[in-house]
């Protein structure tokens, strides 16, 4: 994330992740039993963060959305796992080993999805970054750099959206809360407390905020605050100031 885009870090950190993981079991095992144990790990699981972790080590619940076994070779198992943010896959491997009664550990891990970002789409290397920047700087060719640096909006694709009036934009940029009267459209399914992206009609990200209403209330209420703004991304002054200060 470059510059002001660093403000959307929470939107990606709190989003679901997908990994490809190589697990090593410590004894021979029956494939059937492994498949059965793995099925039991799908859904909500209790997990205590490992010794070497950056969070408080208390038992917490994390949701595993799917585990697909890709390959089994000897005692090594390659699988794809989709899980809630904050799931320790190393721990999942260890716990699968315990449940099987033979012990296991994680050998390799690669993240394949983080919120809106995937391995297949737009993934670039350090070389791509430096080559495309040079092409732009020295030859004015921006075609490649545009493939490397994505607009910040790409980082909030997975969030529900609230589209607002042009006249409300600058007030939000100055940190105001979003009143229902400033709203044009909203995605369905927003619940109180959800993280939402406040956007312009042109699909520009203005701010991230916490919903104080459900989607239905946002479009039907006569008055009230719909979104509490948490992080402003758009530079104030991008849209004209159309609000009056109270004297």
């Amino acid at each position: 994330m470059l510059g002001k885009a660093t403000k959307i870090v929470q939107a990606i950190q709190k989003a679901s992740k997908e990994y490809i993981c190589l697990m090593m079991l410590h004894k021979d095992f029956k494939e059937e039993e492994l498949r059965k144990v793995i099925r039991e790990f799908v859904g909500p699981i209790y997990q205590r963060p490992p010794l070497r972790s950056s969070v408080k080590r208390t038992l917490r619940i994390r949701r595993i959305y799917y585990i697909d076994i890709l390959e089994i070779r000897g005692r090594r198992v390659l699988f794809k796992i989709g899980c809630e943010a904050g799931t320790y896959v190393r721990k999942v491997c260890h716990d699968i080993g315990e449940a099987l009664g033979c012990g296991a550990h994680m050998e390799e891990l690669r993240r394949t999805k983080a919120g809106p970002f995937t391995e297949e789409e737009n993934l670039v290397t350090m070389y791509d970054v430096s080559d495309s920047y040079m092409l732009w700087k020295e030859e004015g060719n921006e075609k490649y750099l545009r493939k490397v640096i994505l607009p910040v909006e790409e980082g909030v694709k997975h969030l529900p959206k609230v589209i607002i009036r042009d006249s409300a934009v600058d007030a939000i940029c100055h940190g105001a809360m979003l009143a229902v009267t400033g709203i044009l459209r909203v995605n369905v399914g927003i619940k109180k407390g959800d993280l939402v992206a406040v956007m312009t009609k042109k699909n520009e990200l203005v701010a991230l905020g916490q919903a104080l209403m459900r989607s239905e209330e946002m479009v039907s209420s006569k008055r009230g605050i719909a979104v509490k703004v948490k992080r402003v991304i758009m530079q104030p002054g991008t849209y004209p100031k159309m609000w009056k200060s109270k004297r």
């Binding site: 994330m1 470059l2 510059g3 670039v124 750099l145 490397v148 640096i149």
Partner: peptide
């Protein structure tokens, strides 16, 4: 974009 952009970096 350099002031407010994202790189999906490997």
């Amino acid at each position: 974009l350099l002031k407010c952009g994202i790189i999906n970096l490997d």
